Amino acid sequence: MSIEVEIKLKIRDRDKLMEDLRAIDFKQGDLVSESDIYYTSKHHDFEKMDEALRIRSIRNLSTGETSSVITFKGAKTDNCSMTRKELETEVGDSEIAREILESIGFTPVPAVEKERQNFYKQKITACVDRVKNLGEYLELEKIVDAEEEKTEALKELEEVLQRLGYSMEDTTRISYLSMLMKKDL
């Protein structure tokens, strides 16, 4: 089982943040476009359970390569971050995967569209996101294998956050999907 330890925050200046990430030895990765289709159903209330099921379609904006993954995210496991169980695997054809889910009673909700610039340092990923209809955000993530590793991983992410001029008080535990749904109300 993988546990995604994650913190997220709205950023003030995307270009400066990317410069600051490079200054603290993060290596710039690919710029990608991601389209996330989330699902709900009558037999499993993902919102109420604080869980998520999605199919993500990814397009590398440099190479044009495409891929898709299906992801289940469990409920958040603490009160200060977005940390949760995450199960993810590649999907050969996202349209067929969507049709399968919809054929067995899952209903799509409006898509979350974003442009994501990835940065990497050791086992930490920094995602600088430009989310359609929401603005610009930073996600800092580290995947761990055991519950016992969560506290140390969160501490590492908080240290990066502080080096970038932010604090845990700047973070949010609200998903992009929830932000967009709230905005539409």
Rank of each mutant, 00 (worst) to 15 (best):
Y137P: 00
K48W: 09
F72S: 04
V109D: 12
T66R: 15
K85N: 13
E51T: 14
F72R: 01
E102W: 02
G92T: 12
F72E: 07
E139Q: 11
Y120T: 08
I58A: 10
A153T: 13
V69I: 08
L134T: 07
F119K: 04
E152T: 12
D93T: 03
E148D: 10
K155T: 10
L161D: 00
G135R: 08
M82V: 14
M49G: 02
S57V: 14
V109I: 03
I55A: 10
M49T: 12
L87D: 08
G64A: 07
T66N: 10
K150C: 13
E147V: 02
E102D: 07
V69R: 01
D129H: 03
M82K: 14
S94I: 05
L87P: 02
S103R: 06
Q122A: 06
D129Q: 01
T89M: 04
G92Y: 07
E102P: 00
E158A: 15
E149S: 08
G135V: 12
K76G: 00
P108L: 08
V109S: 13
M82W: 11
D78S: 01
T66A: 07
S103N: 13
K142D: 09
I124P: 09
E113K: 15
E113S: 05
V91S: 09
I55P: 13
M82R: 08
F106I: 02
G105Q: 01
T151I: 15
L134H: 01
E99A: 12
N79D: 10
K76Q: 15
A52F: 06
V128N: 07
C80A: 06
G135Q: 04
T71L: 05
K132M: 04
V109W: 06
G64T: 04
D145C: 00
Q122L: 14
A153Y: 11
L87A: 04
E158V: 11
V144A: 03
L161R: 13
L140M: 14
E141H: 05
A75V: 01
R84Y: 00
T63Y: 08
I96Y: 09
Q117T: 14
E158S: 09
G105T: 11
R130E: 11
T66P: 02
E147T: 01
E152S: 07
G64D: 13
A75L: 00
V69K: 06
V144M: 15
L53E: 09
L87R: 13
P110V: 15
G74K: 03
V160T: 13
V69C: 05
V109Q: 13
S62Q: 01
V160P: 00
A146R: 13
D129I: 12
E141K: 10
L101C: 14
T83R: 14
N79S: 11
D93Y: 01
S81D: 05
T125D: 07
F119W: 06
